[in-house]
Amino acid sequence: MWLILLMVILVWSGIGLKGLRKKGSVKDMATYIILWAIGTTGLMLYRFGISIPTPLDGIAYIYHPLSSLWKQWFA
């Protein structure tokens, strides 16, 4: 399944890139490639079972003081 999925992703993004090349904006292409690399790396990491910390942890950390206050108030 993963192999087919990977193929679909490759074809899909390849087509996207092809369309982009016609328009010919370097910035667009660069952004496309960078974002694509991030996305695919994420998927592959997930595939090989390498655990990535969820970005929510960071957000939770930032808001921790507020949320603990809130909890106290409702406790």
Partner: peptide, 28 residues
């Protein structure tokens, strides 16, 4: 797309979609 000044937002929908999928798998 608008913040970094791309010609069209359409050009990054596919990679952003991939990122969203990856993110949704690890988010919770």
């Amino acid at each position: 797309a608008q913040t970094i000044g791309l010609t069209s937002y359409r050009s990054i929908t596919i990679p952003m979609g991939l990122i969203t999928i990856a993110l949704s798998l690890i988010i919770y």
